[in-house]
Design a binder for these strands. Structure first.
Length: 310
DNA sequence: CATGCGTGGGG
DNA sequence: TCCCCAAGCAT
């Protein structure tokens, strides 16, 4: 017989379409239609500001912990200008125990910028969003897509994991987002604006609920039949270990304890009260200095401290 | 581009 | 218990 007219496939030219030629996004969006969680920032009444607040809070913090704080924030500050009027320390206090409190400061700063430069409305333009404090590549795309229905590749950790498995055939994405991932995200992005924004939310939700980092449930996955990783026998990650997080005893923990005291105090706190949160004086002083230089703590004359009121 | 930055729940 | 992590950003 003669040589085959069609070259054999290799894993490098993964076909984004399913066996029936159905695009990946159709299966995932169909699944999303039936399985999307009813989250408050997905309701129409949330508006762009609600979407933006939720995105800040969801940066590295699980949905369940965000939910109550999100409700309090939107109730207290229903528009950007409402938050912009407050002292930054009020944002830090209302942030509660969500973690990474610099996000509260940046969200406050973003609200001030929106009030001053954008007439009080969350900007629709991707570049203007990106220019706001605390908004990076992911959050700018997410707000533009979820709040305004625009067509942008939305590459968060969930989507990156779904792509790594379904298309590239590996268990985990790289530590940092690569050019190859951006290229893939653009290639898979549906042409239609409405479909593209739906795809962004759906692919994120699939990673959050089904294609999870551990204990993924392929039996519930709408694209399991086309998943390169599953078809390859779900090989475990090899190579250098993925970057973890530094653990207890770090300055982070001390900063958290210091800030907790200041959050709970309505009046300035004396140095001695802060000294009780950590036994080691050098690390304690370094942590406090860090908080001050970050703008999370305001030093007052006489060794007193408080959350920033200006 | 590797690091630092919180917190609390679940395996 | 201990360890992993959960919708990133700024430097």
């Amino acid at each position: 017989m003669t040589a085959p007219t069609k070259p054999p496939h290799t894993h490098t030219d993964a076909d984004p379409d399913g066996p029936a030629g159905q695009p990946l996004h159709s299966s995932v969006i169909g699944w999303f239609d039936e399985n999307a969680r009813d989250l408050p920032w997905r309701r129409p009444e949330a508006g762009p500001w609600g979407v933006m607040v939720s995105e800040f809070m969801l940066q590295q913090t699980p949905v369940n912990r965000v939910l109550p704080v999100y409700e309090q924030w939107l109730s207290r500050w229903p528009r950007p200008a409402d938050l912009a009027k407050e002292a930054p320390g009020e944002a830090v206090r209302a942030w509660g125990r969500l973690g990474y409190p610099r996000r509260a400061l940046r969200l406050h700063g973003a609200a001030v910028a929106i009030a001053e430069r954008h007439g009080g409305d969350v900007p629709t333009d991707h570049a203007q969003l990106l220019a706001l404090p605390g908004i990076g590549e992911y959050t700018a795309a997410a707000v533009a897509s979820f709040a305004y229905g625009q067509r942008h590749p939305v590459l968060d950790t969930n989507v990156r994991r779904v792509f790594a498995r379904a298309v590239t055939g590996v268990q985990y994405p790289p530590n940092a987002t690569t050019a190859a991932e951006r290229k893939l995200a653009r290639a898979l992005l549906p042409d239609d604006e409405r479909t593209a924004s739906r795809w962004a939310a759906a692919s994120m939700e699939l990673g959050a609920l089904v294609c999870t980092a551990k204990n993924e449930s392929c039996q519930r996955c709408p694209i399991a039949a086309q998943c390169a990783w599953r078809l390859a026998g779900k090989p475990e990650h090899d190579g250098p270990p993925r970057r973890g997080q530094t653990y207890a005893g770090t300055d982070r923990q001390v900063r958290g304890k210091l800030l907790a005291v200041l959050r709970d105090a309505r009046t300035p706190v004396p140095q001695v009260a802060l000294d009780r949160v950590w036994h080691e004086p050098v690390q304690r002083a370094r942590a406090l200095d860090g908080l001050v230089s970050d703008g999370l703590v305001e030093p007052l004359p006489g060794g007193m401290y408080r959350l920033p009121m200006s």
